[in-house]
Nucleic acid binder design. Structure first.
Lengths: 246, 246
DNA sequence: CCGAGCTTGTGCACGCGTTCTCAAAGTGTG
DNA sequence: CACACTTTGAGAACGCGTGCACAAGCTCGG
């Protein structure tokens, strides 16, 4: 039986915990979660714009590129500070710098992938981690037949060495691509080894202690959600959901 | 230039469009988007419970298994109808049936994957589409060197035949795993061929016309969000986000 | 048949996020 | 310098989703 209590534990939910704390030196106000989730969109849009030698960009144009509306862009950016100039727009270069600083993309994040199956292998080879800073440095698997196997320029390490390797590479971000059954145990071991951010691809509910963040990407769930709306579509109603950003 | 206007277009947003419509025969009330996103969690939890020959389950237990809280479970399930018995709980078998009907999992959905790179290949081989009903029937790529190549028991089809093949297989759900640059064009072609649900893995903003739904899964963005909170963690604050369900 | 003990279903209050709207603040021209 | 035009930044209203709290309803034992 897993210890599930910590996940969204009843009376002391995340929403309650972070009330007025969370005003760090770098950010004037607390940045809403929804805004954080959109910053990468702005970042990407600005990167593309920057390559075209455009010096300044309006909230309207940026909104168009990021696929949101202009009011949202302005409010989001205002959380970072007043980086725009009225009547002109935002300085692309400067805004890019501020956002990447805010997102921690000026740093380099070493990443470990645990579970080198179909998905893990694909992630290991995936060049498109967009704005780099995320360097996959460690591949871990439980299957002895895989250990030592070369993928790209990395070789797969046994899960027995998880703790050591994660510590040696100073890894803070782990990617979980194991089967559902192993997810919770691997998550626990990652956390024990000092990992404080986990991206979980395993189709399983999985809990982490306070102070560790975890985001879940579940293909089956995404398909099932699509299926729900797909089903209604034929039978009369219009489909509500367009795109998800959160 | 892509036609971006349709995405979350200003004054006529999705939120405004689906006001009081959306009460289909199968569902007594309009089911909130957030609830729809959690139904697959309940579905999975119930499947595991059902295998253990448990006849009935309380909202509390189901909440624990799904990683949410009990009040939410009850409210969510009440949108489907009053399928529980006070003092007893929910009949596992029956609830399972109702949820899978609601999610359209009683049907079979043929799926096409476009873009057979690292990720596309992994998805093609991925057995874990959980509760099946989602059968990958078509693999499409633009690279002539890949066309005809066998993956599992499917062979890759040229993108020139996209329209024909999608129609022949009666495909309603498409998975987009192309590079960013090709995403919008491929999405347009899928829609033109009759696809009305798209799961988009390409790291690009991409719009679809009204009546088509699209969900986006973006690895780079997920990592950047983790990075944001990871960054703060060291410098004093506690980390707000635990797990995402939406 | 009654009362104790559970468990569901829902009304209600609250908080977050979105959008509208408009004053404030910049640019450029004559 | 004044005026027209552009664009940001934020105050306010609204709607959705969450969680609490409790009445309604079921089971079981005596």
């Amino acid at each position: 039986m897993h210890k599930l209590g910590t996940l969204q534990a009843g009376p002391c939910s995340a929403a309650e915990r972070r009330k007025d704390i969370w005003v760090t030196a770098s950010s004037r106000r607390r940045i809403p979660e929804a805004t954080v989730a959109r910053l990468p969109l702005y970042y990407r849009a600005l990167m593309e714009t920057g390559e075209r030698q455009v010096a300044t960009i309006s909230s309207e144009r940026l909104a168009e590129l990021a696929g949101v509306n202009a009011a949202k862009v302005r409010k989001d950016l205002s959380y970072l500070g007043s980086y725009g100039t009225r009547g002109v727009g935002y300085d692309v270069e400067y805004l890019l710098h501020e956002i990447s600083r805010e997102l921690g993309l000026t740093r380099d994040w070493p990443v470990a992938i645990v579970g080198i199956g179909n998905l893990g292998r694909a992630l290991a080879n995936y060049r498109g981690f967009g704005a780099r800073g995320f360097r996959v440095e460690v591949l871990i698997d439980a299957d002895p037949a895989l250990v030592g196997h070369q993928i790209g320029d990395l070789s797969v390490v046994s899960i027995d060495d998880l703790d050591r390797v994660v510590r040696e590479h100073n890894i803070a971000i782990g990617i979980l691509a194991t089967p559902a059954g192993a997810a919770q145990e691997v998550a626990d071991r990652l956390v024990a080894a000092g990992v404080t951010s986990i991206l979980n691809f395993a189709p399983a509910v999985c809990s982490v202690p306070e102070g560790v963040s975890m985001r879940k990407v579940d293909l089956a769930i995404e398909l099932q959600i699509l299926s729900f709306y797909q089903l209604r579509r034929g039978t009369g109603g219009t489909a509500p959901p367009r795109e998800r950003t959160g």
